[in-house]
Amino acid sequence: MTETLANALLLVGSFFCLVAGIGVVRLNDVFSRMHAATKAGTLGLALICIAIMLLADTWLHLAEAVFVFLFMIASAPVGAHLIGRAAFHNYQPMDPKTQADPESEPFRHPVRLPDSSLPTSELVAEPSHKSPDDPDNG
């Protein structure tokens, strides 16, 4: 019984992971792709972790699955947020159907407050050309 349930969860979980993959290929721009990668990917992994918990025969295995899920929840949105932010600041191509609030434009050149603790080199926004330290993590 437990095994059947775990098998079903594994199947549904891998389906959502597959959807996440297809979404990354199929959707139109960076932001939409991040939607697919974070949401479907996280749920897929969550279901797989629950299946592992059901099949676990020691407490260690159970704890492992819990931690895998916690780290995924903590890291997936942050990763998507940073990729989306970098894409937005670098004027990456956006789905032509995208509409935007007029207030969203100032976000491209963040004006730091004078009392900001950041070093002054980060205060200058360079909108026209690509920044030399283009994030490229291979």
Binding site: V19, A20, G23, N28, A40, T42, K97, Q99, S104
Partner: peptide, 20 residues
Amino acid sequence: SVQVARAVLSPGYAAKPRLV
């Protein structure tokens, strides 16, 4: 996730993205 899955798998995908 179900919503994203539907958007990804439906053939006539017509999203209307917006920056809010």
